[in-house]
Design a protein around this nucleic acid. Sequence first.
DNA 1: TTGTACGCGTTATCAG
DNA 2: CTGATAACGCGTACAA
Lengths: 339, 339
Amino acid sequence: MKAKITLKDIARELEVSISTVSKALKNSEEISRDTKEKVQAFAKLYNYKPNNIAISLKNKRTKNIGVVIPDIVHHFFTTVIRGIEKYANARGYNVIVCLSEESFDKEVINMEMLANGSIDGFIMSLSSETQEKADYNHLKEVTEQGIPVVLFDRITHEVECDKVIIDDELGAYQATKKFIDQGKKKIALITTDDYLSVSEARTRGYRKALEESPMGIDESLILKLPSMELDEAAIKAFLNKMDPDAVLCVNEIFAVYSMRLVQEKGLRIPEDISFIGFTDGVLSKYANPSLTVVAQHGEKMGEVSAKMLIDKIESEAEEETYQTKILEPTLVIRDSIAH
Amino acid sequence: MKAKITLKDIARELEVSISTVSKALKNSEEISRDTKEKVQAFAKLYNYKPNNIAISLKNKRTKNIGVVIPDIVHHFFTTVIRGIEKYANARGYNVIVCLSEESFDKEVINMEMLANGSIDGFIMSLSSETQEKADYNHLKEVTEQGIPVVLFDRITHEVECDKVIIDDELGAYQATKKFIDQGKKKIALITTDDYLSVSEARTRGYRKALEESPMGIDESLILKLPSMELDEAAIKAFLNKMDPDAVLCVNEIFAVYSMRLVQEKGLRIPEDISFIGFTDGVLSKYANPSLTVVAQHGEKMGEVSAKMLIDKIESEAEEETYQTKILEPTLVIRDSIAH
DNA sequence: TTGTACGCGTTATCAG
DNA sequence: CTGATAACGCGTACAA
């Protein structure tokens, strides 16, 4: 076992001073060609690499970014992480992932852990509990300490920081419009409670499209589930009772499960009933029939978030100006609607 | 913006020495009750938290663990990360995630980045390119430096370190046996090239079960795809030509796609043809019909890996003894087979 | 009871 | 051209 070699080791071995070694390795003009060659050769031989921790301490820059998300076993978050990781890596940053598991306390603990010097900035999406309690003190503390934060997807307007969201309202609006244009008469919405910022926005888009149409809104066609968890019984009862000819769902799982239910009743998709979901994940792609979805471009979102964060980290500027980037959703047409 | 406060700040403010502050905060017996109270009150007021980086440098322990995996947009890896994260967090460790994207070079670069002091140990699953090249020097270098490594799922026997795998051979054996017991006569296997350690093991289990049966092995019933990427045309041609009555697939996607193909031909599942896949993800659960799978218990795998790694990190012992933990797979019965 | 000095590994400044 | 010194933030053995 050959342990890592340090500047000091090289200096001792070559009988020069530590600072000479340091400069030689940086190809400083101050050092003679002879010494430089000698040092560099030795360093290469013993595979010298500067210690990140020491450099972090000195520079007060860790080159790490903290990502705090509610859940990782979700296609959307997973694609966001990939986007962040790719971009951050290209700029020399590592990504520390922490899961809040939708819990306020975990979110707070994780942030505190990372905020004590482990990271240069945060990228995060709020846990449902945090959105429900509407308590954002942990975020405010961090930003007050001068640690930059980028919120994505599940955001709040109560914290001053950069934000990245997709236009959920627009996505739902376009999807609902699509149904209307196709002549659908009973357009249902399966969503969750409004404290989740995304569900709230999607519901708004759905309402807007219907309000603009001659049909107007039929409140009984809206099913509000308490959380993103699949409540099979509730969906089944709702679909049986309302018998819609089109359904917009705020996620893939609601949609795919609903499709199976109506198929079991003998309905044909998309002839008798059409479906559109949110999130362009594996489920939508491989469902039978494949599911038309409002794609959220998670990877893009991750990249944009990472770029905003790193730009802020590396900008010397003290100006406190924050922006909110709104990405456009796209409708990915598949076989669950006529086309 | 109130920046982080340091021991030095407190010392200056209270006009005592830095070490007094340090000791006072640790409730050291050496310090008078008066001073301790004064210091602790001040520290609480200004929300003092020790700087992780400084502690890392001093202790030569970062309390970070590096996780290097080929892909994060895959249910299995995602559950493993969750398991790692949960366990590691409970023991005070953070998780740095790096993606190799199935590339050898990225794997090497990521490991080098992290090995320079950023982490106390690695948990990793090999990229397909690495397994194909069978070049493990980057792993060997790291272990030689004394950095503990735990390999999971996609492992190699050429590196001496702890390993965690599931018994892929057993899983495939049990699945194939199930088909045989149900009287299936033409049992096909859709797999990938053998350089992927998991595919190789699964193929072995399939072969073993058939060899033990009166049927024996029909090589033409085995489809070997070059990678985990879905090759729709190849699968279609294969299924049309061979017309099997049971299919074992090494992942969910192959299985779900195959199911759709045979359904389009008018075959009934599971009456005419049955399916079993690997990986218990969302796809299997919500497919139509739902897919019977060999569950790999990713979360458990993550926990076990994290425990092995942290135990090794924290054990003073220099003894170089490595173990391989083999987890048992489970067959999750769903509607793609008779039951 | 408190403070001084040193070390973790690196870099930057300044002196020789 | 080379080296000594200080500093990043903390902890601790040792001195006062």
